[in-house]
Simulated scan of single mutants.
Amino acid sequence: MEKLQTSELDIFRNFIKKKGLRYTPEREIILREIFNIHDHFDVDELYLRLRNKGHRISKASIYRTIPLLIECGLVQEVYHEDGHMHYEHIYGHEPHAHFRCLSCRRVEEFRDERLEEVSREYAEKYGIEVKMSRFEILGYCANCKGKEEG
């Protein structure tokens, strides 16, 4: 029998309840829109997407909601660029890492089971509980590397 996956909304509702906070319509709208984005995003992009759909949600509400989504394991910070953080939703997705080109700023996702092994081994060695790990490689993509050498 296939195991039913708990929805991101249920996870967030339960998390908010345990923290003694109110589950507001604004928080749900923010969460739903984040899970409609299938790429990395920043607060400005999320804010514009919500405004274009007729939602009157402030940037402050978004900035207050994102740390809660991170804490409950639905969203993670991906990288900091141009003075602001970029995020992605991770719930229901395979763990992955990122390569970021320092020249053209392209971001590529990749998977490698060794990354999970490193987290697991580190946790065992030091007796810690890993809630999330983030791995990023910075460098020059093949296209930009060729330009640098030329």
Rank of each mutant, 00 (worst) to 15 (best):
R22V: 07
E33V: 13
S7W: 04
P95I: 02
Y122T: 15
K131L: 15
E108Q: 08
L31Q: 05
L138T: 03
F15C: 07
S119T: 11
M1R: 09
E45H: 10
L102N: 14
D112L: 04
I62S: 07
E121A: 13
G92V: 01
L69C: 03
D112C: 06
F110Q: 03
Q76D: 06
G92Y: 00
I29A: 15
G73Q: 00
C72R: 00
Y91E: 03
Y91D: 07
R32F: 07
F135S: 13
K147F: 08
L138R: 15
G83I: 02
D82H: 10
L50V: 06
K131R: 15
M1A: 14
G54C: 05
R111F: 14
E117W: 03
R32D: 09
I16Y: 03
C72F: 05
L69A: 10
G150D: 11
R114I: 08
S58V: 09
P67D: 12
F99I: 02
K145T: 07
E109K: 09
A142G: 08
E94P: 08
I11H: 02
H40T: 13
L21A: 12
R105Y: 10
I137M: 14
P67M: 10
I30N: 03
L74S: 04
C101R: 01
N36R: 15
E129V: 11
K147Q: 10
E33W: 04
R111L: 07
D44I: 10
H84Y: 09
T24A: 03
Y91C: 02
K3P: 02
H96C: 01
L68D: 10
K19E: 15
S58F: 01
K147R: 13
G92P: 01
I66E: 05
C141L: 08
E28Q: 15
I128D: 07
K53N: 13
I29S: 12
G139V: 04
G150L: 08
E109A: 09
R100P: 02
H98A: 04
E116A: 11
H55E: 14
H93S: 06
E136T: 15
N52S: 08
